[in-house]
């Protein structure tokens, strides 16, 4: 099983998924991320899925779970870089990723988090 590295940039955590995730790695990432949000006091999480070729219901559920979990820990999650083919497939699959915020790319994801923060004041 491979581990997905979690990078820290200011108070944002960045996770860039570069491997073909098996279900165990997905669960591990979920746990690692929750722990890191708390230990590093992160206020935002960006999950970059630019390199991800498919998002099935298991990975989709991970994204929703992470978003809900980090929100509870006072950090906003943004999923960035979803490929068009992946988005079309998710819609067909019937997965709406409720509660997950998305942005076209990493840069826009960072902007989105900053906006969310300044809105909070």
């Amino acid at each position: 099983m491979e581990r997905v590295p979690i990078l820290k940039l200011g108070d944002i955590l960045i996770v860039s998924i570069q491997i073909d995730l098996d279900d165990q790695s997905v669960l591990t990432l979920q746990e690692d991320l929750a722990e890191t949000v708390v230990s590093r006091g992160a206020r935002g999480v960006i999950i970059d899925i630019t390199a991800v070729e498919i998002v099935d219901s298991f990975i989709g559920r991970m994204l929703s779970t992470i978003a809900a979990m980090t929100r509870m820990l006072d950090a906003e999650t943004v999923v960035v870089g979803m490929r068009p083919a992946v988005a079309i497939t998710l819609v067909e699959l019937g997965l709406s990723l409720g509660g997950v915020r998305t942005a076209l790319n990493l840069e826009k994801g960072v902007v989105m988090l900053e906006h969310a923060r300044s809105a909070e004041g």
Binding site: E53, I54, S57, R83, A85, V86, I88, T89, L93
Partner: peptide, 17 residues
């Protein structure tokens, strides 16, 4: 096509699981 590839791979992932 790329979209169809993605669809069949996603279906395969669901069914294999």
């Amino acid at each position: 096509s790329l979209v169809d590839q993605t669809k069949i791979v996603t279906a395969a992932s669901e069914l294999a699981r």
